[in-house]
Amino acid sequence: MAKMPVTLTLNGMERAGFADPGQNLLEFLRRGLGDLSPKYGCGQGTCGACTVTIDGETQLACLVLAETTEGRTVGTAAGLANGAELDPLQTAFMDHFAAQCGYCTPGMLVSARALLDRNPKPTREDIIEAISGNLCRCTGYEPIIEAILAVSEGRTGP
């Protein structure tokens, strides 16, 4: 069974690996490239824990064939911070107790970042819509919504 070489830009760096036929991007990122920030929650496209961006759009890595990302730009939660400097959303999640078990958090942050990138001043309803594909079982939603609102309104601290 021939493996396919895949080269893509992951969080700003060119990365390459070999994908199995039919392998999804989630497995390729995690096992192939060692980016463990996207999480497996269902493999069915129903939980959002594997949310990444592909060419700037949020997608579900478990529903993307790894081989189709050749030459594309992929972003994950591991790339949110600028070096040691956290994204304001990450800081807000920390201050607002917007994570409990932390398993949905990377995907949630990718969705939240994508929202603020295209709509810096979302309403509460916009935020609800934007995170509706990211399940938090703990939950979680109220402080998450509040943390995203805080960033959009320029509030810092808890």
């Binding site: 496209g45 949020t58 579900l60 993307v64 969705s111 594909g133 990211n134």
Partner: peptide, 9 residues
Amino acid sequence: IGSPQVRNM
């Protein structure tokens, strides 16, 4: 249709 992620796909 679906979630924002699903609508992108």
